[in-house]
Nucleic acid binder design. Structure first.
Lengths: 336, 336
DNA sequence: CTGAAAGCGCTTACAG
DNA sequence: CTGAAAGCGCTTACAG
């Protein structure tokens, strides 16, 4: 690595090429009205000095930056999937991506992290932002797309078709013959949690079953929060023969609790998760779940954001991506 | 989402609070010498307007930004691990992280992507950068740490102890009784590829075995590039009883090729990878490999970068993280 | 304790 | 075809 004295600026290039900084800028941006001779000189100087225009200065000056921002609460394996999807959508568009992570709020549950990070970026750096699983509504002068929005949110968003996915999950259990099916929900302020519970209720209702409130527990999507409700559900005399859980992380904990209580899965208890995180396939037994493609969520979010920035977005601005049932080893017909 | 007219700037806050923009700046940055009454007023105005200072403007003006950059070629599951490690190291330091991904070079193998992205960031946005697996030496006015540097690179870097890891891998095969052990290497310009091959050679030499050049194939770390050398190795009359591969991605392809040729793993052929990517555990058979903690690589890179920025870094600037042998189902004593 | 002014590196009307 | 100047949103000496 060579330490250069200072940043190479337009000024350095201008001096070296014997022109004004305005001309350098024109060449860099490929504007018309520069003699080919001058273009040559400037290009040579740029090459020689290794000049690259400052993202910051350009952003500050221009209204348009051709950079999208993405704000995330933490980095998980699914975040990488989202990012891959985003980059796939951006590929060939000339749009770059900046992911911003704030170390103070990282991994904590502090209120307002989305808004803070968003405001810092959207000040001038980005043309628009994607925010992954915001916990609140968010405001910005540039377009924002939420992946997994807050419940009742009116902001543009992309989410899995959680309702249909949950119905599919419960129908899978019903088809296997289960009738007492428990549910452990997620953070109720999020649309995903709400829709997954609605799907559970709807599937039971469709099957002519009444929903037993004692069969419904509540976590907040963090795996540990599933432990207490799982215990309550499984310690009962009339315990369910199956549990549908609003996330794989929580479902994995249900598996643990079942193990602690000496219950065999799927012999004594069937478990279905939601998300299809990589760990699900590794679980003992491998978890039956609903796959939501984080890759596709990222892809669609980037597409929607492009439309929004271009002003060409059409209703609906709340978009859904299909889910898919993945049957593995944690589900079977009920009991003995 | 509420669309705000324009960005809320210092000017807006100043007007609302009835002070100058200089005073607003002082309050925002907690500088001394502002009367508590003024501080109150300014704070109230900030609160009311939802002001957040522009990252871009601040970066441009200041020498120090308290933001680290990370430049990556693509987003993979291991990238998320690296990012988690980085954020863990940054947690509580007040340092934020910006990840920059360029859509033009994303996923392609275009030359110079590291340098371009790095230069755009380090112009003024970041105090220093981490670059993940650069393919060339890189220069910058601010400190740079490479995760998995180029071979013979003198830049500050963090890498797994690839040499020791490779020795461990080969010793594992030797202990099982293998004597004809093949090797498929990676992109030879990278230090990791070189060290893994050196380890292979060293372990064989230590065991008193001469290295057979026909047993060495070469890929470039991209999984598909392992197919041809694997075929060559396994089609031979005197084929090896085991293959050590410089990456899991390539090892997984070796498994496929073996399957195509009707060879049983580990019955007819043992395979050892390197990296321990999540997919390795899922392979059939599950892959024996050398674990390099990407999380720890990210963590150490962020620590080293902090030292570099603070000017307190001590030699050596090339740091190594230990590896660990993970024995799974793809290795066994040789044949029949 | 506070403000006016310079300047970070750019781009873009405005002149010529 | 080219340059001088204004200004993007900030921070920081410099005055007062």
């Amino acid at each position: 690595m060579t330490e250069v004295r200072g940043p190479v600026t337009v000024r350095d290039v201008a001096r070296s090429a014997g022109v004004s900084i305005a001309t350098v800028s024109r060449v860099v941006n490929g504007h018309y009205g520069v003699s080919s001779r001058t273009v040559e000189q400037v290009r040579a100087a740029i090459e020689e000095l290794g000049y690259e225009s400052s993202l910051v200065a350009t952003s500050l000056r221009r209204n348009r930056t051709n950079v999208f921002g993405l704000v995330t609460h933490s980095f998980e394996s699914y975040t990488a999937e989202v990012l891959k999807g985003v980059m796939e959508a951006l590929s060939g568009t000339g749009l770059d991506l900046i992911v911003y992570a704030n170390s103070d709020t990282y991994g904590t549950r502090s209120h307002g992290w989305e808004q803070r990070n968003l405001t810092r970026l959207s000040g001038t750096l980005t043309d628009g932002c994607i925010v992954v699983t915001p916990w609140t509504e968010v405001k910005s002068r540039t377009p924002v797309v939420a992946i997994d929005p807050v419940r009742d949110s009116t902001m543009p968003s992309v989410a899995a078709d959680n309702l249909a996915g949950a119905v599919t999950a419960v129908n899978h259990l019903l088809t296997l013959g289960h009738r007492r099916i428990g549910f452990i929900g997620g953070r109720s302020s999020l649309a995903a949690a709400w829709a997954r519970e609605e799907g559970y209720r709807a599937a039971l209702a469709d099957a002519g079953l009444t929903v037993d409130p004692t069969l419904i527990g509540r976590g907040d999507f963090h795996p540990e929060t599933a432990i207490a409700p799982a215990r309550t559900l499984l310690d009962s005399d009339d315990r369910p023969t199956a549990i549908f859980t609003a996330s794989d992380g929580m479902a994995l904990k249900v598996l643990e609790v079942a193990g602690d209580l000496g219950l065999d899965v799927p012999g004594d208890l069937s478990v279905v998760g939601f998300d299809n995180i990589p760990e699900s396939a590794l679980a003992q037994p491998a978890l039956t779940t609903i796959d939501q493609s984080m890759h596709q969520l990222g892809y669609e979010a980037a597409r929607l954001l492009q439309e929004l920035v271009a002003g060409s977005a059409e209703q609906p601005l709340q978009r859904f991506v299909p889910t898919e049932l993945v049957v593995r080893d944690s589900t079977a017909p009920p009991g003995r």
